[in-house]
Design a protein around this nucleic acid. Sequence first.
DNA 1: TTCGATACCGAACATTATGTTCGAGAAAAG
DNA 2: CTTTTCTCGAACATAATGTTCGGTATCGAA
Lengths: 192, 192
Amino acid sequence: MSNLDRRVQRTRKLLQDAMMQLIREKGYDAITVQDILDRANIGRATFYAHYQSKEDLFLAHHDDLVLTVGLEPLTAEQLLSPDPPPSLVAFLELLGHNRSLYQVIIHSRDSDRIRQGLRAAVSVNLADCLQSGFEKAVSHMPLDALTEYLASAQLALIDWWLNQRTPYTAQQIATMLHQLRRAALQEAFALD
Amino acid sequence: MSNLDRRVQRTRKLLQDAMMQLIREKGYDAITVQDILDRANIGRATFYAHYQSKEDLFLAHHDDLVLTVGLEPLTAEQLLSPDPPPSLVAFLELLGHNRSLYQVIIHSRDSDRIRQGLRAAVSVNLADCLQSGFEKAVSHMPLDALTEYLASAQLALIDWWLNQRTPYTAQQIATMLHQLRRAALQEAFALD
DNA sequence: TTCGATACCGAACATTATGTTCGAGAAAAG
DNA sequence: CTTTTCTCGAACATAATGTTCGGTATCGAA
């Protein structure tokens, strides 16, 4: 018994594709489960046999994608380097290429969890790096507050960027994020 | 014909009080219009004669309060001073005293508008100051992005602060916000 | 105090969306 | 071919929003 009945595969793919289509057309928030069902030509009962909700459907196919990319561990050297780490640039480029999708996702209400999770992940990632790489230096700021500040600021700027008409390049945004982060760290650790 | 019939006053006050009670008990998001009606002992039709929605009811009594306090114009001197401007400290103290309320409000979904409005206001406030006070200096960063970054970061940190168990004082948070902002501006304008 | 205007009540109704249930029938697996 | 599993569809339950309307209570003003 292979784990995936063909019908299951077919159903899930139809639902997923329908959702993506609709997201691009109307935006994530405006979609109802019924919309997805109509578009995918799938029965109501069938939907709930596979997913618990609209959010569930979305996350089932994008969770890991969003949360793993761009979260490679940082090093202290990277943080203090004059240039942004390549992983940051790569992450922004990925988002930039799927701009039409992510700008609508990140902006939606129901995706609060996604944002929260992402922010927390970014914050933790940074915190790990600071703890291991800045052991000797003593900050005059609470570190949890600092990482929260930086993570939120970064995601907010990315959000802003994705919604801009005249886009800067991923490289430019990465540079800007990096410089501001470095400046904040230098301030916090009195490294001037 | 005085503009406010006593019955109107009574009804609105009952609704407002009921909502505030419920917010503190269950959180803004969990409340339904029906909850408010039950608690206030007010008829459904009556509610909709006064307000269009739950959000409408809330904003009718808190809109100006949230949006006007703490947004006194900034000056360049304040931005570069070693100490945070008094208006910032005062703003944080106000929020801190109503912590139980604001932490729940700011966190809610339906109040996205409030957050967005606040963020935009903070951003514009800062942008005005930069334009008038930093005319000569040239930034190597786009200013709109910079103000967006700073405004979001500030509000995120405030949000974090309001939800902390062991609270720092308003003064401490204000100092932190101020120092980080100054560091970012120095970076952006190469004032080191 | 009376009287007309206005606000409230409450109950019913329309609407929209979510989520569940169940039997019949189709498709897959072996 | 048989058995298992999935899908369908329609009905049902639930919950929330927002409207309507006639009857009743309250208000403000004369």
